[in-house]
Amino acid sequence: MKLVTAFIKPFKLDDVKDALKAAGVSGMTVCDVNGFGRQSGQTEVYRGAEYTVDFVPKVRLDVVVDDTEADAVITTIEEAARTGDIGDGKIIVTTADQVVRIRTGERGRDAI
């Protein structure tokens, strides 16, 4: 099983959520995060002065999927979250050793 973690632009959350649901993903965890990548923050001009945001607000999305579905899920997120502009975010995939559904005690892919 894979844990797919994506860092996306906040306004893309609904698009990504809808695309993942359409692709059969039944659950996800979402949280608000701040960070920077190659973009190194963000600079604007506010009334003639420079206004810098060092850590840019992003949304982090975690989805656990079966190995066989991982590539499709990654592609789905990638396509739904892409604007083509700088700051579109990252997707990180790690191996999940075990998943447990607490209510029933199911394990492995049955618990996804």
Binding site: N34, Q42, E44
Partner: peptide
Amino acid sequence: WTDWKATLLKNLYVRLVGVIE
């Protein structure tokens, strides 16, 4: 009301001022 939301709103405000002013 979190720092995250405050930053998002501030970014938007700054950009809108640039458009309006």
